[in-house]
């Protein structure tokens, strides 16, 4: 096990810092796909690295070693990971696994509850549900797999928007459902639970999916200024409505709406191949490191294998033992 095992943590730290910036710079569809894909892969890589570190310690526990075919003594001799490091890794792995599992469970419950609430509502032929409520509100609610999602809007929001602006609203919410934005958001949340260094991912993906739907809506009505106007009008009406306190649980994200409107008033977003390449390179580094770590871990346990111990391998193991331990010691101190 070499220092390379820490690569996924370094990559996720850098990625975590860059995520909000990339989210605002890249075209929203690219940003969403790229950040969610890379975020998920990096989160999985860091969990794998934790598992490999923890496994060097677990493998030395008698009842686990008894299941495998390696000798505890040899493993201990070859193992370059200090027991403290391994135990910290084990603890961290436990915490993030529980956090990720809890996130998945909560998300599933949310979907089921939303789907149950939707079943009781009669929608229009295109999936539109209108609620007679003076407080402005509009939501896209995904259906369960196989079912269709619904767009839920209040009469309050329909009344503050003009005819053309209403088309922007409906196109925006339909885009959420059609492009499955809730899936991207869910994956981002789980990735952040699995790796707290990626804590900025869910918020950023929320923003990029909103922007994605904005761009879709602007394309559908063929007028970016109109789309900008619809969003600004709806946001001002939502903030000022006296009954708004009731659904205030949905909170606000400072700066999001003005930023969305500014983007729509500007020219359509340009591609940034360099940024995209950078993110993909970070991913490639991370995956290459994971592959090395996998090889290292396999080698470590092969070296410690007690059963197929031909005299030659034992001799080899003993010869390299001191050397390996010394090298690992050096590497560890360097880290």
């Amino acid at each position: 096990m070499r220092i390379i095992v820490y690569t996924p943590f370094l990559v996720s730290m850098l990625l975590g810092l860059a995520i909000p910036h990339f989210g605002r710079r890249l075209p929203p569809a690219t940003a969403t796909r790229l950040l969610v894909g890379v975020g998920a892969a990096v989160a999985a890589s860091s969990a794998f690295a934790l598992a490999c570190l923890a496994w060097t310690y677990l493998g030395q526990l008698p009842f686990i070693a008894a299941l495998g075919d390696w000798s505890i003594r040899l493993l201990k001799a070859h193992d370059p990971v200090s027991p403290v490091t391994a135990m910290i890794a084990l603890l961290a792995l436990g915490i993030v696994s529980v956090a990720a599992a809890a996130t998945v469970a909560r998300r599933c419950l949310d979907y089921l509850r939303a789907a149950r609430a939707l079943r009781r509502m009669r929608g229009g032929p295109g999936g539109l549900v209108i609620v007679d409520d003076p407080a402005p509100g509009a939501y896209a609610v995904p259906g369960l797999p196989g079912g269709r999602g619904r767009v839920v809007v209040s009469t309050g929001i329909l009344r503050v928007l003009s005819a053309d602006e209403r088309r922007v609203l409906l196109a925006h919410e339909r885009a959420h459902l059609r492009d499955r934005h809730h899936l991207y958001r869910a994956i981002a949340t789980v990735a952040a639970a699995l790796n707290p260094l990626l804590a900025a991912l869910p918020r950023t993906v929320e923003y990029t999916t909103e922007r994605w739907a904005d761009e879709r809506a602007a394309g559908e009505v063929g007028d970016r200024r109109l789309a900008a106007r619809a969003i600004a009008t709806a946001a001002l009406a939502t903030t000022h409505h006296p009954h708004q306190a009731r659904s205030a649980v949905l909170g606000f994200h400072h700066g999001d709406v003005p930023s969305r409107v500014t983007c729509l008033l500007a020219a359509p977003p340009r591609r940034h191949p360099l940024v995209t390449a950078l993110v993909i390179m970070a991913l490639a580094t991370c995956l290459a490191a994971v592959n090395e770590v996998r090889t290292d871990t396999e080698t470590l346990f092969e070296q410690a294998a007690s059963r197929p111990a031909t005299p030659a391998t034992v001799a080899f193991a003993h010869a390299t033992q001191a050397q390996t331990a010394k090298a690992a010691e050096t590497v560890h101190r360097a880290g």
Binding site: A138, L169, R185
Partner: peptide, 11 residues
């Protein structure tokens, strides 16, 4: 937010 995509957040 992951389940309900609302049109606008509060300002």
């Amino acid at each position: 937010a992951a389940v309900l995509a609302q049109f606008v957040s509060r300002l």
